[in-house]
């Protein structure tokens, strides 16, 4: 029998994966450390576990989309991430792409001229 619950869960995770990159890039237009970033994403309904977030931050940094630096805050050493100029450009392109995808899907769901 088709397990629709786990199937939906798998497809939901697949759908969210790409969106998480977008959300992380968007959130890092303002400098943040990993922990506060995770909390802020969760507050906006995009909870992400640390095992996914930190490797993702490292990957985006190695791709030149993020920059980071260790700094002391509240007597503790923390690593702060922020979007680079290349990251800003890619974020704009990805947001435009997402709008295109949304509009295509909406058109498929409700073709023009059909009510």
């Amino acid at each position: 029998m088709l397990d629709t619950v786990s199937l939906f869960e798998n497809l939901r995770l697949e759908l969210r994966r790409g969106s998480l990159v977008l959300a992380v890039l968007a959130a890092l237009r303002h400098e943040q450390c990993g922990y506060t970033l995770r909390k802020s994403l969760a507050e906006h309904g995009l909870a992400i576990d640390e095992g996914t977030l930190y490797p993702l931050l490292r990957r985006l940094e190695s791709q030149g989309l993020l920059a980071s630096e260790w700094r002391e805050q509240d007597k503790r050493n923390k690593r702060f991430y922020r979007l680079t100029a290349d990251g800003t450009l890619i974020l704009e392109q990805l947001l435009a792409e997402r709008l295109d995808i949304d509009s295509s899907i909406n058109e498929i769901l409700e073709p023009r001229g059909v009510k």
Binding site: G34, Y35, R38, E50, Y54
Partner: peptide
């Protein structure tokens, strides 16, 4: 990586 995980 350990420094960052530790901090988190």
């Amino acid at each position: 990586i350990i420094a960052e995980l530790s901090e988190d």
